[in-house]
Nucleic acid binder design. Sequence first.
RNA 1: GUGACCGUAGCUCAAUUGGUUAGAGCUCUGGAUUGUGGAUCCAGAGGUUGCGGGUUCAAGUCCCGUCGGUCACC
Length: 371
Amino acid sequence: MSFSFEITCQDDFSQARCGSLRTAHGSIETPVFMPVGTAATVKAVPQDWLEQLGAEIILSNTYHLFLRPGPEIIRDCGGLHGFMDWKRAILTDSGGYQVFSHRELRKVTDRAVEFRSHLDGSRHVISPERSMQIQQALGADIVMAFDECTPYPVARAEARRSMLRSMDWAARCRKAHADGPQTLFGIVQGGVFLDLRRESLARLREIGFSGFALGGFSVGEPRTLMLELVGELGPELPRRAPRYLMGVGTPLDLIGSVRAGIDMFDCVLPTRNARNGTLFTSRGKVRIKNARYKDDQRPLDPACACRVCRRYSRAYLRHLYVADEILSSILCSYHNLYFYLGLMRSLRKAIRAGRLDRLEKRLRAAYAAPG
RNA sequence: GUGACCGUAGCUCAAUUGGUUAGAGCUCUGGAUUGUGGAUCCAGAGGUUGCGGGUUCAAGUCCCGUCGGUCACC
């Protein structure tokens, strides 16, 4: 058995819990944040820096790797682990989300998704079976079912039709999933309709998965609505399996969802925002391109112990960003991941100490709306 | 020195035969970014049209002078 999940601590005051996820590539302390490495790289962050940051698992993407360089090449290079020389755990997304975000390039039927490559316009088809096949070639420790991400806003009837299609696909993924070291997670859909979400979850439980994800959130719905739904659904997800909220989120989203019993997250926010000059600090967001930092010699976040904050000034970081220097992305991405992974460490610690409230209060002070 | 051409936003340029409140791109300033298209989007600021006269109901546009620039010729 190369995969297992053990709950090591349950918070007395909320649904939050700490756990340990075991994979063939090491164990993972939860709640965990998975940096996003779409194209077999967490953009601008070398693998050994990721190790230093304490990342125990990263996410990569079936859609992008399927188009380039192609699953055969990666398989022949020893799977994603060998290809990118990453010795810790990897989760691959199934490509379902790209079907959603590249809406204009696709055609969805019950059987499969036809789409045109965003790179060269070439035509391709991905079915649930094909997604499983590709993900097997990529060789991640955790693979996701191929789903349809329901957009927002959406009419209830359409949300149900979409959810049922995803559930049918989930069953096909289960069937197509080969025995081996990889483990398969199912994805709850149903838009913003709680009863549809429950129906989706019931079907997934029937099919049987080793982990359960909430998909289709943060697609434009009000943030409070998402947190409300996650607050309801989190505790209803199977207690003894890992619970994964896909694509989320901001620091406040994370803590709110952890309280609802979520164990796993991924989000492009820390890395994408880093490249766009928006940095996460203990005092809230810092937009390093702002003119006020032009001659600011203080560290980005005086309370942060990362190598960027120890060594460089805001003035220098701003200069790198404004001058469009490569080092800007590198340093900012490193810092933002340091912040996110540190936040997760603090969350785990707070759960064990029963002090989640205090941490949330502090975060809220820094990140209260708007932003 | 003589002649020709040109002076419009920080930069590069628009603006119908003279016709509303002189526009755009870039830059600049602020914001967005949630299972990543190294992408993109939104908003804002910025002008005595080199300067001074004149003609006209009306001048960035026509005329005169002046300052500055570029080129050609002495």
